[in-house]
Simulated assay, not measured.
Amino acid sequence: MSRTARPQSSNLARRPLATPQDVAEYCGVPLNTVYRWSSRGGGPKFIKVGKRLRARWDDVEAWLDSQTITA
């Protein structure tokens, strides 16, 4: 099983991964909604770190951008 390496940059400051609670607060939705998104394949991409769900902030922002509705 091969792994795809993410580009590394010494100038790139990494932000801590977002917890489901962080995502819920940021999006203004209940925590259960975030878990529902994760279990049904909606919402931002989540990754498992050990037993915990985490999200990259870039993935959260990208998902929010994809949800933008233009009138």
Rank of each mutant, 00 (worst) to 15 (best):
S2W: 15
T4L: 08
T4I: 06
A5V: 14
A5P: 12
A5W: 10
R6L: 09
P7L: 14
P7F: 08
Q8M: 09
S9A: 11
S9N: 15
S9P: 01
S10N: 11
S10F: 13
S10I: 12
S10E: 11
N11T: 11
N11H: 05
L12Y: 07
L12S: 04
A13K: 13
R14G: 09
R14E: 15
R14K: 13
R15M: 13
R15L: 14
R15E: 04
P16F: 09
P16T: 11
L17A: 13
P20I: 01
P20A: 03
Q21D: 11
Q21T: 10
Q21G: 09
A24W: 04
E25D: 06
E25W: 09
Y26M: 05
C27A: 13
G28I: 05
G28W: 05
G28L: 03
V29D: 02
V29Q: 01
P30A: 09
L31M: 04
N32Q: 14
T33H: 05
Y35G: 07
R36S: 13
W37F: 14
W37G: 04
W37M: 08
W37K: 08
S39Q: 06
R40D: 00
G43D: 00
G43P: 01
P44S: 04
F46I: 11
I47G: 12
I47T: 12
K48D: 05
V49D: 04
G50W: 05
K51Q: 08
K51M: 12
L53K: 05
R54E: 04
R54S: 05
R54M: 06
A55W: 01
A55C: 10
A55N: 00
A55S: 04
A55V: 02
R56H: 06
W57Y: 07
W57S: 05
W57A: 04
W57E: 03
W57L: 05
D58R: 00
D58N: 01
D59Y: 00
D59S: 01
E61M: 04
A62M: 06
A62Y: 10
A62K: 12
W63F: 07
L64E: 03
L64W: 07
D65K: 06
D65C: 11
Q67S: 15
T68P: 02
I69L: 15
T70Y: 12
A71K: 03
A71P: 03
